[in-house]
Design a protein around this nucleic acid. Structure first.
Length: 407
RNA sequence: GGGGGAGUACCCGAGUGGCCAAAGGGGGCAGACUGUAAAUCUGCUGGCGAUGCCUACGGAGGUUCAAAUCCUUCCUCCCCCA
């Protein structure tokens, strides 16, 4: 076992903020002295079950706690999800049914246990208390907050300043999240920096209810592979925990260079020193960015698929992008014979039929821009009919391939 | 309850009678380059087997030779005052 200082360092490493730090030290010390595990709360939104390496940032931190003998409470926000959170934008989120939520939560936990230790994890649901509350209970609860206080949250503050709408129920989210902490008597709550205000609300409420306030640990938000917006499935810039090794490798390779160090810090198990070396090497040019990025990709893939699969993914990546070879598995596209006339098919029709272009217009554009190859030969005209034999390879752009099968 | 503002393509957003399939940006796609699907640069970005036709500026009507633009009406959203 590491000593106290070392443990603290590990637990705080990569975190954006620990609020307040000395309280954390005290709690942590006492937990060791009394041999009593800390209860670390982590709230989960069961609306989108697919986890990505952005979620993994927090999950990995939780795992560190578990490794030191502490417990994680995975709180499924099933109550909130049932109401649907329309915060921001006008997009009304579909309200989820209880069954859907259950299913999502199940997928979620299954994926989370790729990182977390199931034995040291307690799963709970906030419907357990919220569904029992009366309006009177709610009023009593909300009386612990003032509007001025809630307006401190910078998201609310900004919207208020800019005359943008703030839904009343949105005001209640921090209240609810805080109440979760009361019900769970959590010692620590972990979450993204975007959760800071809500988590701090938990501290206030716990004090009101005579509990020792939780320590709040915020984790940085990981940008997606576009390097700009936060990683999210709906933005399509995510690296999913269940992505195939090849995809995972490729996606990581496409992050902007500037993000590499952050990714190392938040998504891999590399030590502080190793990361420092990388950082320096990149700065003085002694390390090649492409090499570093492939190491990053390898590290990440290895975590979820094992290092053997990571090796294969790396080789595959080289084959396609360095040597411009064909990938190993090319999806097959079946072409029924009625598509053909005299053994030939209009190239535009072929592209749309396979799904490489949504419309004929799009297919024409691809051809005009020199992005379409049949058996490695550039298609130069939109007005030709091509003969197709089983096993022929159709390629669009650099990375879309199909093996054509006639039947 | 009263007053005001807005709704344009995947998103943001310009356009106040014809030159509008609609500026600009973002995103997406393709090409070049290379170190990768980074960065940068260039091009494309409603549909149709296509020098034309069709569909489109919240919905429905109307005025006009001609409507994103003017009128009527409905819907939706927002703000301010009370």
């Amino acid at each position: 076992m590491h000593d106290f200082k070392e443990q603290m360092e590990i637990l705080c490493g990569g975190a954006e903020e620990v609020l307040p730090l000395d309280e954390f030290k005290v709690k942590f010390k006492r937990s060791i002295d009394e041999n009593r595990p800390l209860m670390v709360k982590y709230g989960v939104d069961p609306t989108s079950p697919d986890l990505h390496i952005g979620h993994a940032v927090s999950l990995r931190k939780l795992r560190q706690f578990q490794k030191m003998g502490h417990k994680v409470i995975l709180l499924i926000g099933d109550f909130t999800a049932r109401i649907g959170d329309p915060s921001q934008r006008s997009v009304t989120r579909p309200q989820l049914s209880e069954d859907e939520i259950k299913l999502n939560a199940k997928t979620y936990t299954k994926q989370a246990f790729k990182i977390l230790d199931e034995k040291a994890t307690i799963i709970d649901h906030n419907s357990r208390w919220f569904s029992m509350m009366s309006f009177e209970d709610i009023l009593k609860l909300t009386a612990n907050f003032t509007v001025a206080r809630l307006l401190e949250r910078d998201d609310f503050y900004k919207r208020y300043q800019e005359n943008l709408p703030i839904g009343l129920h949105e005001f209640l989210y921090p209240v609810m999240q805080g109440y979760d902490s009361v019900m769970l008597k959590s010692d620590i709550e972990l979450g993204g920096t975007d959760q800071k205000f809500n988590m701090l609300a938990g501290r206030n409420l716990q004090k009101v209810y005579g509990q020792k306030p939780q320590v709040v640990i915020t984790m940085p938000i990981l940008e997606g592979i576009d390097g700009i917006q936060k990683m999210s499935k709906s933005l399509g810039n995510h690296v999913g925990l269940t992505d195939k090794p090849d995809d995972m490798f490729g996606k990581v390779m496409s992050i902007p260079d500037e993000l590499m160090v952050k990714y190392f810090r938040l998504t891999t198990g590399l030590s502080k020193e190793e990361i420092e070396t990388i950082k320096k090497g990149l700065r003085d040019g002694s390390l090649h960015p492409a090499e570093i990025k492939r190491r990053l990709a390898h590290e990440i893939v290895a975590q979820y698929h094992g290092s053997k699969m990571a090796d294969t993914a790396e080789k595959e990546f080289d084959a396609i992008f360095k040597e411009r070879a064909l990938p190993m598995d090319i999806p097959e596209a079946n072409l029924p014979s009625e598509l053909f006339e005299d053994g030939k098919i209009w190239i535009v029709r072929l592209l749309t039929y396979i799904g490489f272009a949504r419309t004929n217009g799009e297919a024409r554009r691809l051809i005009e821009q020199g992005g379409v190859k049949l058996n490695n030969e550039l298609i130069e005209s939109t007005e030709i009919n091509v003969a197709v034999y089983s096993g022929d390879i159709l390629q669009v752009g650099k990375r879309r391939f199909a093996k054509l099968i006639r039947f």
